[in-house]
Amino acid sequence: MNYQIIVCGGLAPDPLQTLEPVFDTVNPSLRNELMLPFVFDPWAAHALYEAGHLAKQRPGTTVRVVSLAPKAKLQQVMMTVAQKLPFELVALDGPGGGFTDARAVAAALAEAIASMPDLDRARLLLFGGWESATRGAGAVMQRVAERLGIREQFLAVDELSVAEDGSLLIKERIEGGRHQISRCAGPPAMLAWATGSLPEPPNHPQTGMANMRVILPALQKAKTVTLAQTAEYLRAALPAAVRQTRVVKDVPAAEIARELAEWIRQ
């Protein structure tokens, strides 16, 4: 059996950048947000790599990425992501980042997916990140699945394999550092990926060139999306960095470790 894999993935500012919140009760943002280099959200990227891996094993499988982000940023990011593996893009031009509302984002993504003319629910695997590098609420994928009527939902997925009878074996992370293995009869299903087990594919400009032939037109006809902002923000701040220095002599390593652990617990 081959699949129609749809990967939902947004963008996140490059984590090495200085991320300084600019507070606004309705529309908070980051300082110089649109000047920062962005990356494809790392959680969604894992989902994409797993999708590519599955597509390689199952000839005829297609991979589509649905992304809601500022169009210009998305185009820049695609210059890297498009080199990883073959896929098509459905672009939604709208706000991204950590201050968008999960409900509104899910609605926009679900609408874009539902309106795909060749959507085949019997082959549909909906992939995405379990959470995101922007806010990490972990709420978007379930909402998209619910809106599309997909009841088989798996969170924090680390591995997917297809059994001979076509059923899906899915390994999910659960508490205590353990995994839970579920068997799902088949599509449609939603898999929100944790880190998976695949490395990032190397860049391959030839793949990118082939992808861009369909990605650029998709970017040009990206639908503009306005997200209803229902949340009110009371505060936006970076985690505080605390530095305390004490000069000591002749203290055993174990004692230093105990003291450090105590300090961290505080």
Partner: peptide, 30 residues
């Protein structure tokens, strides 16, 4: 506001319309 990024460089050095070169840049940079 911030150090000139790829978008600025692409316009300065005239390859803003060359996605093949933009991809090559990302690939080499990695």
């Amino acid at each position: 506001p911030a150090l000139p990024g790829d978008d600025v460089r692409q316009v300065l050095w005239r390859f803003a319309d060359r996605y093949d070169l933009q991809m090559l840049v990302q690939s080499v940079r990695a």
